[in-house]
Design a protein around this nucleic acid. Structure first.
Lengths: 210, 210, 210, 210
DNA sequence: ACTTAAACGAGACGGTACGTCGAGTCTTACC
DNA sequence: GGTAAGACTCGACGTACCGTCTCGTTTAAGT
C-alpha cells in the first residue's frame, strides 16, 4: 500500500504534540467544535499547519487524541503517590450492587457536568455520530472500555446471585448509561445525583409492582 | 427587539419553501450533514441563496423544519382516507403494557433504521448537541412530544395498577428510549427487535431475581 | 418592435421624480458614484425601486437628468427677478477677447471646484468615458452646449479681427478647456484663477517669442 | 502602520502574477472595466481569488500594474536588440520644435486609438477620476512621467530661444495634451494627425493674428 | 564533531463556501 | 395604470479555512 511516505514517528516533536493537544482542548472550550479550525489550533500551538496535517487526518482526530491524553494524565495524576501498584479503572465491589452502581453513576454525572470534560467529550460524541470512522474510534477507545467495567461488575453480581442469571450484562448496563447519555447530550432533563439513583433503582427492580 | 427588518411571511413563496425542504433532505442523505452547504441547497432548489438566508439562520434550522414537514406529511398521508377524525399520535392501550411498549419500540427501531429518516434525524440530533439553541428546538418540537406519549401510556398503566404508583413515568420511559438512542446514535451495538423487547422486559421487571 | 409597454409619462409622479433627483445628488456627494446604488436612491427618495427602473436605465442616467435639472434650476433662480427676457447662457462680449475669456474661464474653475457640482459632474464625466452611450448624452446635453458658447464668441472675435481668420474656433477653444478639464479630472495640478489666466494668454499669443 | 500581516513578497508566485496581468488586460478589453470582476480575473488566470486580494486592494490597482507591466514589456521589446544602452523614453530634439512636437503627438494619438491600449488606459483614467488614491497613482506612475518629457524638451527649446523665456513649460504642454485627452476620453471630436498638428501650431503661435 | 535527511515554522497557493449586498424582475395591495 | 413595498433569482463581493505545496531552519541519528 503506497502511503504518502508515512512520517517517521521516532523523530516526532513531543513539544509540538503537547502544544497541539493544549490548543485543541482550549479552543473547543472557547469557541466550540464547529468553529475550531485547524489553522487556529496550529497558530495557537505555535506550530505549522503541516505539522497538524502530518499526524492527524482531521480536527476530530486531534481532539480525540487530546482528550485521551487528558484522561491519561488525570489517571496518572491520581496515582502518582501510590507505591507502585497502579490503581486500575474499576467499579468497586462492596457486595452491595445497588450502592456500588449509584456511587459510580454519580461520579459519571459529576464528570459529565464538569465543563473541562463536557466540551470536548460532547464534541467527540456528536462528531462521532456523523462520522462513522471517528465514531467507531470514539466508542472503541473511550466509551466501550468504560462500559466494560459495568459488564465485569454485573458478572460478579450474577455470580453472587444478585442479578438474574439470564440477564445480558451488556444490555443491562444500558438501562442507566443510555438515559444518562441522553439527558446529557440532548439536554432533555436535569442530570443530578437523584436522577442517577432513581435510574439504578428502576433498573434493578423494575417499574412494575412486586 | 430590533431585527433586521423581519421579512413579511405572508408574501413568502410556498414553492421555494418546499423546494428547499426537498433539497435539504436529499442532500443530507447524499453527502451528509457536514458536507451539505447552503449554496448547494439553494442551487438544487433552484432558489437564490438569499431566500434561504432570509428564512433560516443556519442549515441546521432548515433541516429541522424540513424534517418536521416530512413528519407532518407522513402523518397527513396516513390519515387522508379517514372519515374526518384525525388519528392522533398515540401509543395503543390493549391492556397489556408490555406488549404495547414492545410494539411501539419495535416501530421506533424500524424508523431509526430507515435511511430516509436516519440521515436527517441523526444530523439534527448531533447538531443539537453542539448547538444548544437548535438542540432545544429539536427536543421541544421533535423529541419531547414523542416521549410524552409514553408518559401518557405509563400513567394509564399506573391507574390500572400495572406500574408501581411511586414511579416517575418521565424517568421510567428513558429506561428504553435512552438505550435505543445510544445504540442508534453511537452505534454501540445492533439495533434490533429482539433488543427492543429485551429492554422493555428488563425495564418492567428489573434485572434482579424476583 | 415590442418594447416592454413603454410607461405613460403623462401619469408620471412629479413628486417622485424630484425626490429621486434630490436623493441621487445627495448620495453622489456623500458616498461617491460607485457606492451609490439604485436601492439607496429609491429608499432615500421614499420610492419603490421599480419607479426608478421604469424611467431610467441606469444610475448614470438618473444622475445626468438630476444634474441637468440642477443646472436648469440654478439658471431659473438667477433669472427669477428678470422682467421677462430670459438671460441667455452667453459669454460676454466687451470687445476685449482676452478679458472676456479669462472672466468666463475663472467662473468655470470656480464652478468645478464647488463641491456641489464637482461630485456629480465628475461622476458623469468619468462614467461617460466608459459608457459611450452615456458619454454621448453627456457631451451632447451638457458639454457641447457650453463649448458652443466659446465658438460663438470666437467667431465674433474673428469678425472683429482679433482672431486669425484661418483658425478653427472649435479647436481653438480646446486650448483652454482641455487643460482645465485635465487638471480638474485627473488632478494633475492646482486649478486656480492664475492658471486659467495663463492658459488664455498662452492660447491667444502662443508660446514662441513674438 | 499596522497592516494585516503584510504578505511576504519574496515568496510570491511570478507565474500567478503574470497570469493575472494577462487576464486583467484581456478582460478589460472584452467586457469593459465595470463588468470585469475580480472573480473573473482569478478564474481566467487559474488562480484563487485570495491570491488577487493578497497583492492588490482593488481591480483598478490590478489593472494599473498590468498596464505598467505592459508598457515595460513593450519598451523592453523595443530595446532587446540594442547593444546595451537602453533607449530612454525621450522626445527627439532635431532642433525643429514644431516638427518634434507634432511627431510625438501624432504617435500619442496613434497609441490612444490602438484598442490594445485604449481599453485599459481609458478605464484607469476614468477610475482614477472617481478614486483619488488610484488617480494619484495613475498620474504619478503613468501620466506625469510622460508629461515630464515635454517639460524637458520645452526647456531645451527655451534655451535655444525657440520658446519665450517666461513661459512655464509644465503649463504650456497642457495646451496640447489637455485637448488630446479630452477628445480621446470624452469623444468630443475626431482624434487625428491633422488635429494633433493643428494643436501644436495653435499652441506655438497663438490664435491671434501676428 | 560532522553530515544529512526528516520534521519543523511559516505561509503562499488553488479552491470552496461563507454570509452580505445589490441588480434587475416580478407580485401584491393601494390610490 | 402608476405606485410603495418588498420577495424573488442571480452574481459578485471580500473573508475564512481547507488541504497541498514550497521554502529556509532546526534537530537528532548515524556516521
Amino acid at each position: 500500500m503506497a502511503q504518502k511516505t508515512a512520517p517517521d514517528s521516532t523523530r516526532r516533536s513531543e513539544r509540538s504534540r503537547r502544544a497541539i493537544y493544549d490548543a485543541a482542548l482550549a479552543l473547543v472550550g472557547e469557541v466550540g467544535f464547529s468553529k475550531m479550525t485547524i489553522e487556529a489550533i496550529a497558530s495557537r500551538a505555535g506550530v505549522g499547519k503541516q505539522t497538524v496535517y502530518r499526524w492527524w487526518p482531521s480536527k476530530g482526530d486531534v481532539l480525540l487524541d487530546a482528550f485521551l491524553d487528558l484522561g491519561g494524565q488525570a489517571h496518572a495524576e491520581a496515582n502518582k503517590d501510590g507505591e507502585g501498584a497502579d490503581t486500575p479503572y474499576e467499579i468497586p465491589d462492596t457486595g452491595d450492587l445497588e450502592a456500588d452502581l449509584k456511587f459510580v453513576l454519580r461520579a459519571t454525572v459529576d464528570e459529565l457536568v464538569n465543563p473541562k470534560y463536557d466540551a470536548p467529550y460532547r464534541a467527540l460524541a456528536a462528531e462521532g455520530m456523523l462520522n462513522p470512522q471517528l465514531g467507531a474510534e470514539f466508542v472503541e477507545r473511550l466509551l466501550e472500555p468504560a462500559l466494560q467495567l459495568y459488564v465485569k461488575r454485573l458478572r460478579a453480581a450474577q455470580e453472587a446471585g444478585q442479578v438474574a442469571p439470564d440477564v445480558d450484562p451488556r444490555i443491562a448496563l444500558e438501562l442507566w448509561t443510555g438515559p444518562v447519555a441522553q439527558r446529557w447530550l440532548q439536554r432533555t432533563g436535569p442530570l443530578t445525583h437523584e436522577y442517577a439513583d432513581r435510574l439504578v433503582e428502576y433498573a434493578l427492580h423494575g417499574i412494575t409492582p412486586r
